[in-house]
Design a protein around this nucleic acid. Structure first.
Length: 888
RNA sequence: GGGUCAUUAACUCAGUUGGUUCAGAGUGUCGCCUUGACAGGGCGGAAGUCACUGGUUCGAAUCCAGUAUGACCCACCA
């Protein structure tokens, strides 16, 4: 026994194809080969382009599950497009991610004992670029491990000179169109990164907090009013107390003043219908500098604005003796002071939503400040229309509603950030304050403009001060599909004309507004055309318990370890098997195992084909010939399905079709039928056709499992053919032989039924099969049944055998002549089935005797019902005969 | 508070215009098999009141209304 085993293993080794393979080796080998042959590189030519721009991952990023999902999908699409003969171009790149990267660099410097404040802008940026040059390509290298076939020669970075040039051009252009302006507004302030954030960069989380009731004494009176607040530390910034004008409890206090505790400032009681009478005491403190709604009231009632915070979230001089304390420490201290002075009446627990900075997780502070804004309303119009009229299609469609809602309620975009890592805003101040400025791409242009504007030709370069702020990261990425082809600086260049608009965009719904919507706006604004035709929105990758993957929970698998363990092909399959468009996917590692099993199955099928001994002199085996004819049609049928799935972005359905085609139809049916008896060589004709078929399987498989398919493509034969699978062609559709398909399918069902009876009755010998000559019959392939169901003869009989085991496929009845050991049991079974059929007949006949059905239902449907009726009657008669036989 | 989507087998999900014997797939599970590609395998089986309640219809997993549960989006009341 051991000897045979060892002999087998030796044979394997000699043949060069052991029953296992090294996925990592294969991946490295072929990725290098593809790169060496420049297969991923695209230049404009006479073919139709198929373009995808990658959603640029942050340079700070490492490959997480979301990236893997996303980029696998893009790679599947781009590889298939390449095989379809399109000029496939996948533009890769990274995003400079200003806040995230700056935070990383600040942290790194801090670890070295260096404060950002001690560095000049230039010195800091040098550190930042060093960091980028060292770490920026990590994620791109990881994408290569996954097999992504990006055109790496085109790799872009949102802070590249060419990209920055586009950004500046756009800024100046929008400014000149009157869409960019400076404004003193309430913005979201991240006290940790010490910058503003756009509304989209604020994430709200439900937090348990406290609601404090504080007593304010009315001036020259013993009366008090009670206000409720979640932020008692902001009382230093209070400049009014508001009540509803119709609230009778406070009518007598209109026009009076109250004293703010601790600061002892007198502030007016104002009336405004904004105040909710029902809520709390109906009395509201107003802190115009630290709350959006309070600012609105402050503007309306001409209230004083008192800003009590420093940019880092500590209190400034307005905070009196709490000056320098952090806002949360100050809160505790203020509460303590109020408590000791008896002004604090009540503390209730209270859950409310708190805005957090998406990048730093710091609690966002509403803060009044001078910032740059972009007016969005006009820009949004064509972008909304494009989605509504179908010029741009969203998959899945459900996102259209969300999109519309956002686009019709769009607010101005705060585009300035108080950071250094990013594009510095090209605005130049020439006066003492920030009132007088010009906007220009270069300092020279700015100087010229400033001279004209001031009518002062002696103005010098050093009189200009460039705006310190940089632009929001998204202000460069919203131009991505245009700027990667230099389409803004050089609108007529060949590249942009050829590649734009791109075809598909694959990204997560979380950046639908951040990015997708804005790209649409910039596309229409700067090229009068949509930037892409289809947007495929993937779901979130969750863990098997449905939880979001996050660092805190530690439930996000190490992606590189997964690739290492299962191989990139298997991980891709694992991800894709469970990813329907737009729905979140619950990732379980077992899916990768399933992918690996599939890879192994294919590997071994190839090994079988490869190791067969071939006999040139033998004529083609009839069963094999028959089976090959069937498989070719089956393949065509599935190919059509796969193409259809692709057109609807049902990528996992497409993969499942291929999975079943290869595993079930190819391996379980075709190979089993073609396989000659042990020791007999295969005929050359069959083998050659088999290789053709296997190659076609590999073509279908390639977009999903690029590495393994490429490896087998080169292993399987040395005939002349396309040089590599990656640049070979996707199978083309051809005729389907429906007759063969249906006969084969009937045959397969018969085989399954016979096997089932064999299992039940524990029959392992060869048996004959009988059928009544009077019975209606379907076509089937005897040789196939003989081989796979161990049937040795097919007898047509005039009378039902006395003792037999019947089975039925459709309406065709067949019998295995066996003595029935326990007729009663069989009769009982048959009677049960008889009852079912009779009941079914009643239902069908009831339907058919209903004139409303016959009159209203489409003819085809009625016809089908009539067929059901005749079929069922025939079945009933068969079963009754079988019962009668057994009863004798 | 406003809105969107979902709920189908143990799990993850399909189910297209309401109509095919429509209740499906993959995984898992159970039983049997195993020296000739693959135990990461083969063969066969079991498994669901389509969330619930009504309605429309000749006919509902599918359409409508309501309820429950969950997810997400938007806006936020101190």
């Amino acid at each position: 026994m051991l000897a045979t085993f060892v002999a087998q293993k030796l044979t394997d080794l000699l043949m060069g194809f052991p029953n296992k393979f090294n996925a990592t080796q294969i991946a490295e080998k072929w990725y290098a080969y593809w790169l060496a042959n420049n297969y991923f590189h695209s230049t404009p030519d006479s073919r139709k382009p198929y373009t995808i721009v990658i959603p640029p991952p942050n340079v700070t990023g490492v490959l997480h599950m979301g990236h893997m999902m996303n980029n696998t999908l893009q790679d599947v699409l781009i590889r298939r497009a390449r095989m379809l003969g399109l000029n496939a171009c996948w533009v890769p790149g990274t995003d400079h991610a200003s806040i995230a990267t700056e935070a990383k660099v600040v942290q790194k410097l801090a670890d070295l004992g260096v404060n950002k404040e001690d560095l000049s802008r230039e010195e800091f940026l040098k550190h930042a670029w060093d960091w980028k040059n060292e770490h920026g390509d990590i994620i791109l290298d990881q994408l290569k491990k996954l097999g992504c076939s990006c055109d790496w020669n085109r790799t872009k970075f949102t802070l590249d000179d060419s990209m920055t040039a586009s950004v500046l051009q756009v800024f100046v252009d929008l400014y000149e169109r009157g869409l960019i302006f400076r404004g003193y507004r309430m913005v979201n302030w991240d006290p940790e990164a010490q910058t503003t954030l756009s509304d989209e960069e604020v994430v709200y989380e439900e937090k348990k907090g406290k609601l404090y009731s504080i007593e304010y004494r009315v001036v020259d009176s013993n009366e008090t009013v009670i206000i409720a607040t979640t932020r008692p530390e902001t009382i230093m910034g209070d400049t009014a107390v508001a009540v509803h004008p119709g609230d009778e409890r406070y009518t007598h206090l209109h026009g009076e003043k109250v004293i703010v505790p601790i600061v002892n400032r007198e502030i007016p009681i104002i009336t405004d219908t904004y105040v909710d009478v029902e809520y709390g005491t109906g009395c509201l403190k107003i802190t115009p500098a630290h709350d959006e709604n309070d600012k609105m009231l402050g503007d309306k009632h001409n209230l004083e604005f008192i800003d009590i915070f420093n940019p880092n979230g500590t209190l400034n001089a307005e905070g009196l003796h709490y000056k320098g304390k952090d806002r949360f420490d100050a809160r505790k201290l203020v509460v303590a002071e109020l408590k000791s002075s008896g002004k604090l009446l009540e503390i209730k627990s209270h859950t409310h939503k708190v805005g957090l900075s998406e990048r730093t997780k710091a609690v966002v502070e509403p803060r009044l400040s001078d910032q740059w804004f972009l007016k969005m309303e006009e820009l949004a119009k064509p972008a909304l229309l494009a989605v509504e009229d179908g010029t741009v299609q969203l998959f899945p469609k459900k996102f259209i509603n969300t999109y519309r809602h956002w686009m019709t309620n769009i607010r101005d975009w705060n585009i300035s950030r108080q950071l250094w890592w990013g594009q510095q805003i090209p605005a130049y101040y020439y006066g003492p304050g920030k009132q007088d400025f010009v906007v220009a791409i270069t300092k020279e242009d700015a100087l010229e403009k400033a001279r004209k504007k001031t009518k002062n030709p002696s103005l010098k370069g050093q009189d200009l001060r460039q705006e310190e702020d940089v632009l929001d990261t998204w202000f460069s990425s919203w131009l991505w599909p245009i700027s990667v082809f230099d389409g803004i600086r050089f609108p007529e260049n060949e590249e942009i004309q050829y590649y734009y608009p791109t075809q598909d965009l694959v990204t997560g719904p979380d950046i639908l507004f951040f990015w997708v919507a804005r790209m649409l706006m910039s596309g229409y604004s700067f090229r009068n055309q949509q930037p892409f035709q289809n947007v495929f929105l993937t779901g979130l990758v969750r863990d098997s318990q449905g939880r979001k993957m996050s660092k805190q929970l530690g439930n996000s698998p190490d992606t590189l370890a997964l690739i290492e363990k299962y191989g990139a092909d298997s991980v891709r399959v694992g991800l894709l098997l469970s990813s329907s468009a737009g729905n979140d996917l619950l990732f379980d590692e077992s899916l990768c195992q399933q992918g690996k099993n599939f890879a192994n199955k294919i590997w071994n099928a190839h090994r079988l084909i490869q190791n067969w001994e071939i006999d040139d002199s033998r004529p083609q085996d009839a069963t094999a010939k028959q089976t090959l004819i069937w498989y070719k049609s089956k393949f065509q049928k599935e190919l059509n399905l796969v193409n259809d799935h692709f057109s609807k972005y049902r990528i996992s359905d497409a993969l499942m079709c291929i999975y079943k085609l290869i595993w079930d139809d190819f391996c379980s049916w075709l190979l089993e039928l073609i396989k000659p008896a042990y020791g007999i060589p295969i005929d050359a004709q069959t083998h050659a056709e088999l290789i053709d078929i296997f190659e076609n399987n590999l073509r279908l498989l390639h977009p999903f499992m690029p590495f393994l398919s490429e490896e087998l493509w080169h292993n399987i034969t040395d005939r002349t053919k396309e040089e590599a699978l990656v640049v070979s062609s996707w199978p083309t559709a051809s005729e389907i032989d429906n007759h063969t398909l249906s006969v084969f399918s009937h045959t397969m069902e018969m085989i399954t039924s016979i096997r089932s009876i064999r299992k039940q009755k524990n029959i392992s010998t060869k048996v004959p099969m009988q059928l009544l000559e009077t019975s209606s019959q379907a076509e089937y392939y005897e040789n196939v049944i003989s081989k796979l169901a161990n049937i040795n003869s097919f007898q047509v009989v005039t009378d039902l055998p006395q003792q037999s085991l019947p089975f039925r496929v459709g309406t065709a009845a067949y019998y295995l002549p066996f003595s029935v050991e326990n007729p009663d049991e069989e009769i009982a079974k048959l009677k049960e089935e008889l009852n079912y059929q009779k009941e079914f007949l009643v239902i069908v006949q009831k339907k058919l005797s209903n004139t409303r059905f016959v009159d209203n239902a489409p003819e085809q449907v009625v016809k089908i019902e009539r067929k059901k009726e005749t079929d069922t009657i025939e079945k009933i008669s068969q079963i009754e005969q079988q019962i009668t036989k057994l009863q004798r």
